[in-house]
């Protein structure tokens, strides 16, 4: 088991593993995600209250779930960076941050557009959307700080500190925004599924969520490979890889 962690310290090992994993992640992700989306768009029954606009849920919820999960994954990787100084952990943080930011933006956009037919307004300062907006800025901060520091090691550790400070604040932010929202919104509108969603609705949703996780895995592998190539460009194994006849 410890061998696994030792191997994980090697960028070359990860590069090879990623190359082999990526096709599986991509095709299983596409299959699951498209199955969920198509089922949800065309085959799931319309909602009793919201009619057909609820179908946005099949991309809103996966985006929102992933946006939050990716930040938590980054926080775990940040801990690894600070405690064990593992390079790959920082590679993950740098690679995943822009993806997380895009996912957060998509969650915000789909959430806002969903709000228009539901509440009659394009933007609403409800607890969930506001928390997502703050999360977007947590991502932007990590990305901006990472690119502002030129030294690789310092950049890794500084971003790690920032991400950890952010993750500690996330429950506080969520709680505060919920409390703030109850002050200002007399009617609490719940945007997502009621607990008793018929299987016709939550199964495609689950497929879409799982599919998007797999697709994220694929994209993270891809972006981590790029970052590894940049960092390890002078090593022998990379030079073998980029030779004509090599198989990058």
């Amino acid at each position: 088991m410890w061998q696994f962690f030792h191997k994980l310290g090697s960028p070359k090992w990860f590069y090879d593993i990623a190359s082999r994993l990526m096709p599986w992640l991509l095709w299983s992700g596409v299959a699951l995600f498209m199955a969920g989306v198509i089922w949800g768009l065309a085959f799931a029954p319309p909602d009793y209250l919201q009619g057909n606009s609820y179908r946005i849920i099949f991309i809103h919820v996966p985006s929102a779930f992933l946006a939050q999960s990716v930040y938590i994954m980054m926080a775990v990787a940040a801990t690894v960076t600070l405690v064990w100084r593992m390079k790959l952990a920082d590679v993950f943080v740098k690679s995943a941050a822009p993806v997380g930011a895009v996912l957060t933006f998509l969650a915000l956009f789909t959430g806002a557009v969903w709000g228009k037919p539901t509440w009659g307004t394009w933007w609403i300062w409800d607890a969930r959307l506001t928390s997502m907006l703050i999360l977007l800025f947590l991502y932007f901060g990590a990305i901006a700080l990472g690119s502002a520091i030129s030294d690789e090691k310092s950049s890794a550790r500084a971003v790690a500190v920032l991400v950890l400070v952010g993750v500690v604040n996330i429950p506080i932010i969520k709680y505060s925004v919920e409390w703030w929202n109850t002050l200002h919104q007399p009617a609490t509108f719940k945007l997502t599924e009621k607990p008793s969603m018929p299987a016709d609705m939550w199964v495609p949703l689950l497929l879409a969520v799982l599919g998007l996780y797999l697709l994220f895995g694929w994209l993270a592998c891809l972006r981590m490979q790029t970052e590894i190539l940049v960092r390890e460009g002078r090593t022998r194994w990379v030079r073998e890889l980029v030779k004509p006849g090599g198989n990058p």
Binding site: L41, P46, G51, N52, R55, S63, F109, T110, W114, P117
Partner: peptide, 15 residues
Amino acid sequence: MGGHGPYVWACYIVF
């Protein structure tokens, strides 16, 4: 989409 077409499709297209 029962009148909600522009919203639903805008979301999916942007996504």
